[in-house]
Amino acid sequence: MLTKRIIACLDIAEGRVKKGTNFENLRDAGDPVELGKMYSEQGVDELVFLDIMATIEKRDTFLDLVGRVAKEINIPFAVGGGVRAIDDIRNLLKAGADKISIGSAAITNPDLVSRASQEFGSQCIVISVDPKREGNSWKIYIKGGRERTNIDAIEFCLDMERRGAGELLVNSLDRDGTKRGYDIELLRAISQVTNLPIIASSGAGKKEDFLEVLTETDVSAVLAASLFHYQEIKIGDLKEYLKSNNISIRI
């Protein structure tokens, strides 16, 4: 039976983990490779490395990092941030990334998704969306949630599926950073219309939030960032908790 995935997301700026972490057992808690390795040892199922600065000048720093991660960590990992062109995707895959997360560019240039899935295969194309609620529907935002578009989130996810995306990473601007739990209604609405695997993101604050989204919706994976970095929840404890609540989990 396929297990539900627990994914840790690391925000990277200039090759370093953005915020300080309080892992005492790490020589260098700001080193994404060290942190990734530790998560991997704790049993995380997958990692995401997001280049949050993503300037062209700093591109090589990020590529070098991706190469180091690929050499030292043997669980799957996705990378994203500033992916705009086929060449960006090719370079990141060559450096050893398993999947590429495409954000704003999927909205401003949806043909990129069609071309990328044709050229590299659907399995490595993850679409990251930032929906925000408006009445009974959700609109897509771009540029890290700063700019509203008129695009309906559900319609957009269906379009991405048609274009060959392999997976949807669904954030929620209503829940991001609130620790009030995942956006169940949004995730349910998207998972009911698409057949793609969905990664739930934004809003996790406690173990129960993970259990709720995995029980109430048909998402395939749950993602969190600072919650894991600050060890508010340990990955091993979370997995034990979910398993004891009859969620299919790899221990």
């Binding site: 039976m1 396929l2 297990t3 539900k4 995935r5 199922d45 659907s122 399995q123 392999g166 997976e167 057949n195 793609l196 695997p197 969905i198 048909d218 395939s220 994976a221 790899r250």
Partner: peptide, 13 residues
């Protein structure tokens, strides 16, 4: 079969 999410992605026993 299309009653499953496709692709299968993740850890399976």
């Amino acid at each position: 079969p299309n009653d499953e999410r496709i692709p299968q992605i993740g850890w399976n026993e």
